[in-house]
Design a protein around this nucleic acid. Structure first.
Length: 478
RNA sequence: UCCCUAGUAGCUCAGUUGGUUAGAGCGGCGGACUGUUAAUCCGUAGGUCGUAGGUUCAAGUCCUACCUGGGGAGCCA
């Protein structure tokens, strides 16, 4: 007999039919005549209630059916008299894999997220983490669906790179050299010509530069790959290894770029609402439960309400200069409540400033554009004013910057001058400059931190809980 | 990396200004009861109090260092 999955069984009304199901035991409740087994196979949040007759199966078998054990059941699907629509009256039960109840760390009770992080290999078996895993999958799919529908091509940019000019942060080195005894050159430095690639190599911090090469031929491309930053960041919104989506579009100016970013985010959130509502409801309840001890004003907006709000309302768009003006005239600035003073043009906005704009002033997502050139990357297009660049940051409540992007500098001379000023090695970047030498066109793109999106969509507070196995400083378990 | 904070049973936590044999709930185990819903009730086992020093007649409690977790900041997605 073919195994059926619980997702389908729970929707079935084929009462009286005999079916086979396999999964992991969540809880077992013992009764005089029958045992109730809540079985979950991960295909859906809800469990299937299996009813096992005590006399028919005997205590020896039933004793092995503990929380965490894997079982296969053949039985008759019936209408349930309890809270659930259907249940399975067991005819045969096979214990596929036992789980010693004395040692199995997951109990039928609430666990802290910190504890579950330590047993990340088992946390998929909880409601919370299976829900996150399913939502995450849906979002991966929705990303590809969105771009495919809009005529974008997915490009696999390299994971190992020899370029250290991406400028997006500290890099992890990739080498096959013997670290204890590396080959040295005449000056006594490590001789990278003996390394695997014949030069020094690192893990990528961004696929953008390669993405631009593809966009300037295919018109619209996107990347969706792993990204590595060796920054010593210890926060709830940073990972050393994360997944980033980077679309790049030829003939797009900053406005086109903003339109795409906003449409993209709304599409993803709407997709989650349309396809993951059971998991989202669970995550919402979980969040409310967790925050019920917090004072009213510190509680989050209800998750589904929040997602709908973002999906249905336009983002605020304003320039960096306008933002500085708002901040300088804000209540916290006048009362001296900002830890960092907003000194005017040139001030790099701090988290507290971004949060004020998004959470207090506008109370909706904000796209900030036209930042001072000196606080942004070399490849961003210089505006006609000469002092700002066509950059854009999409700021979300709680998580801050979810997207960073810009129109790229397509003018060869302007770009080269900027690279010189910012000490970007021109020779190494010659391939990049070729795009500006031959058939250069205005183009734009942005990067979306995938885990930051998942943090927002699931309402989780820590980015380490929305990636299966988080890599952070001093932590590379599993 | 900096600031703050925590580390007591498998988990979540309590432990009074330092003072006898360190407690609870949940979970486990045993039993009772029962078409149950993280079932309920009774009983029971289970602890190098993060690690190493120090102060003291006496340290879970005070001091120092280190380790680990959490929150915030910086860097950014």
């Amino acid at each position: 007999m073919k195994r059926q999955e619980i997702k389908e069984i729970l929707k079935s009304d084929a009462f009286g039919s005999t079916i086979k199901v396999s999964g992991w035991v969540r809880t077992k409740r013992e009764s005089k005549n029958v045992n109730f087994i809540n079985l979950n196979d991960g295909t859906v949040l809800s469990n299937l209630q299996v009813v096992a007759d005590v006399e028919a199966f005997g205590s020896e078998l039933l004793k092995k059916i503990n929380t965490g054990a894997a079982i296969t059941v053949v039985g008759e699907l019936v209408e349930s008299g309890g809270q659930q629509a259907v249940e399975l009256i067991a005819k045969q039960i096979e214990v596929v894999g036992e789980a010693d109840p004395d040692k199995y760390p997951l109990q039928p009770k609430r666990h802290s997220l910190e504890f579950l992080r330590e047993i990340a290999h088992l946390r998929f078996r909880t409601n919370t983490f299976s829900a996150i895993a399913r939502v995450r999958h849906s979002m991966i799919f929705a990303v590809h669906k969105f771009f495919t529908e809009k005529g974008f091509f997915n490009i696999h940019t390299p994971i190992i790179t020899s370029s250290d000019a991406e400028g997006a942060g500290e890099m992890f080195q990739v080498t096959t050299l013997d670290m204890a005894n590396p080959p040295l050159n005449e000056e006594g430095n490590i001789d990278y010509s003996k390394d695997f690639f014949g030069k020094k190599t690192n893990l990528t911090v961004s696929g953008q530069l390669e993405g631009e090469l593809a966009a300037l031929a295919l018109s619209k491309i996107y990347t969706f790959g792993p990204t590595f930053r060796a920054e010593n960041s210890n926060t709830s919104r940073h990972l050393a290894e994360f997944w980033m989506i980077e679309p790049e579009m030829a003939f797009y100016d900053l406005n086109d770029n903003m339109d795409l970013a906003e449409e993209f985010l709304k599409y993803l959130i709407q997709y989650a609402l349309d396809n993951c509502i059971e998991d989202l409801k669970f995550l919402s309840d979980r969040q409310q439960q967790e925050e019920k001890n917090k004072p009213q004003d510190q509680r989050s907006m209800e998750l589904i309400e929040k997602l709908k709000f973002v999906a249905e309302n336009d983002f605020v768009r304003l320039t960096y200069t306008e933002a500085i003006d708002i901040l300088q005239n804000s209540k916290p600035a006048k009362k001296g409540q900002f830890q960092y003073e907003v000194k005017g043009f040139g001030t790099d906005l701090q988290s507290e400033h971004e949060r004020y704009l998004v959470e207090k002033h506008f109370k909706k997502p904000v796209i900030l554009i036209d930042y001072p050139a000196n606080i942004k990357a070399f490849y961003m297009k210089v505006n006609p004013d000469g002092k700002t660049v066509a950059a854009m940051d999409v700021l979300f409540p709680q998580i801050g910057e979810i997207i960073g992007g810009s129109q790229r500098e397509e003018r060869y001379d302007v770009l080269v001058e900027k690279m010189k000023k910012m000490d970007i090695p021109l020779e190494e970047m010659d391939w990049y400059l070729d795009t500006r030498r031959y058939g250069s066109v205005p183009h734009s793109g942005f990067g979306l931190g995938f885990e930051r999106l998942i943090t927002f969509v699931t309402g989780m507070g820590n980015i380490r809980d929305v990636i299966p196995f988080a890599r952070t400083p001093q932590n590379c378990e599993f």
